[in-house]
């Protein structure tokens, strides 16, 4: 009961099916999942297994075709688009593989955007955005447009944007997928810091190094969660690789 009260995500029979040729494609199929507050969860699995669709369902970017979803205890699977938008701006931060920064806005303007959306004054939003950019080591690029930033810098800006409203949940979809190894290392360090700070995280990744950041590792195949492993005390990269090899077998 305590765990349920503390849950950030509660999914019961969550499904997302698409019409296919004859039989529907079950991108996410009857997923049951509880993620507790302060927990860092990695989701791994082969391409097309439904990882990203699950993440999109949890963040309200897509609607489930069946099942029930609660976010912070609130039932959200039947919310309207507008209600989801209002909920998302306060409670969910997204980090995408392709960064998805607004090209026309500078780094600091991108970061302060969610704060402005929740009604913070421009001064407060700017102060918080600058502080976050300093914390993530890109304060010197605050006035630059995304086109002038490196991949690693863009992802830091995206992370700062995801964190500015201190959301209940950060959802990251292949956050290092477009980065070189150096930038990947820096982003992983930041995610590790977030985990240490008990930020609830859900990371979808192909990269065992990213997966190793989490407290818990979920394995997905054909739209379902087939493995759920707790990585108490953290697991080495080799151990995670061995774990994945076990799933693939």
């Amino acid at each position: 009961m305590d765990a349920e009260m503390n849950a950030v995500i509660e999914a019961r029979g969550l499904s997302r099916h698409y019409p296919g040729d004859g039989t529907p494609v079950r991108a996410v199929d009857s997923v049951d999942l509880v993620v507790e507050r302060g927990e860092a969860v990695s989701v791994m699995g082969p391409s097309g297994c439904g990882k990203s669709t699950l993440l999109h369902l949890l963040g309200g970017l897509e609607r489930p075709t069946a099942g029930e979803l609660r976010l912070g205890g609130q039932r959200v699977d039947r919310l309207s688009e507008t209600a989801w938008a209002r909920l998302r701006r306060r409670n969910v931060g997204f980090v995408f593989q392709a960064f998805h920064l607004v090209d026309e806005l500078t780094a600091v303007e991108n970061v302060e955007l969610p704060a402005l959306l929740v009604g913070a004054s421009r001064r407060t939003a700017r102060r918080r955005a600058v502080a976050l950019l300093e914390r993530l080591g890109v304060a010197d690029r605050a006035g630059h447009l995304p086109d002038r930033l490196s991949g690693g810098q863009r992802q830091r800006v995206a992370l700062a944007r995801a964190l500015i409203n201190e959301p209940l949940l950060v959802l990251a979809d292949e956050p290092t997928g477009n980065l070189d190894s150096h930038a990947t290392g820096e982003i992983l360090k930041l995610f590790a810091e977030l985990r240490e700070a008990h930020q609830t995280l859900l990371l979808v990744t192909h990269d065992p190094r990213v997966a190793a950041v989490a407290d818990r590792l979920l394995g997905m195949r054909d739209g379902s969660i087939v493995e759920d492993t707790r990585l108490d005390g953290g697991l080495s990269r080799q151990a995670v690789l061995a774990q994945i090899a076990g799933w693939e077998a």
């Binding site: 963040g59 970017l61 688009e81 507008t82 938008a85 209002r86 909920l87 998302r88 701006r89 306060r90 969910v92 997204f94 998805h100 920064l101 607004v102 090209d103 026309e104 955007l113 969610p114 959306l117 929740v118 944007r161």
Partner: peptide, 13 residues
């Protein structure tokens, strides 16, 4: 794409 990004950040339609 930009509008979709804004919506992921919580902007309403």
């Amino acid at each position: 794409r930009h509008h979709a990004i804004l919506r992921t950040l919580g902007a309403t339609p």
